[in-house]
């Protein structure tokens, strides 16, 4: 029972309380770049959930059975970035061949997250928090869900902003960043949850 409780705490903590974009600033590029429409935002969110969950699982396995076993934890950055980057590209090829339908839905977004900071960030966070493989994967999944929640909300707001009369200098990125800032304030409210 204790284990389940711990996983639940991680799930809520990583997805809402310390949201990956709004409080840790990881994965800002896709967050700002692919949030013009809800539809693309959902696609990006799906791809991120898929990649981060997979990558944190693989990074966890490597950490457990290679890095810790041979006592070479200091190589973590090099190993994780190479493995993750190669993994994403491999997944892309694999999906294209084997699951064309899924590739249609997620394929365009996959290269955009090849070496995204969020993916590497989760792997390193998992390692520093000394999470096991299962806990790490759950943490990765939760983090990605947090990203998806944030990007979909932002996209929804941006669709409305498009009809507003924004001062000239604030058109484009600045107004989006202000929106993100207000969202970050809202997400600070979750910190009482745990």
């Amino acid at each position: 029972m204790d284990n389940v409780k711990e996983l639940l705490v991680i799930l809520i903590g990583s997805s809402l309380v310390s949201n990956v974009v709004l409080s840790q600033f990881l994965g800002l590029c896709p967050f700002l770049g692919v949030s013009r429409k809800v539809k693309t935002a959902v696609g990006m969110g799906g791809a991120v959930i898929f990649v981060i969950t997979l990558a944190s699982f693989v990074a966890g396995v490597i950490n457990q059975f290679v890095l810790i076993k041979f006592k070479v934890q200091y190589l973590d950055t090099i190993v994780f970035i190479l493995v993750i980057a190669a993994l994403v590209q491999f997944v892309e090829m694999f999906l294209r061949k084997v699951m064309p339908a899924l590739y249609e839905a997620l394929g365009v977004y996959l290269p955009l997250i090849t070496t995204n900071c969020a993916v590497l960030g989760v792997a390193i966070n998992n390692e520093q928090a000394e999470y096991g493989i299962l806990t790490g994967t759950v943490n990765g999944f939760a983090t990605a869900v947090g990203f998806t929640v944030a990007i979909v909300i932002l996209a929804g707001i941006r669709e409305k902003i498009a009809y507003n009369d924004v001062p000239k200098a604030f058109q484009g990125m600045p107004i989006v960043l202000l929106t993100a800032g207000l969202m970050a304030i809202a997400f600070v409210g979750f910190s009482g949850l745990l």
Partner: peptide
């Protein structure tokens, strides 16, 4: 990043491996 963030991804953050 300010123009279109996807450029940034091409500059390095998220390049094809």
């Amino acid at each position: 990043c300010s123009e279109d963030c996807m450029n940034c991804s091409d500059q390095g953050c998220t390049r094809r491996f």
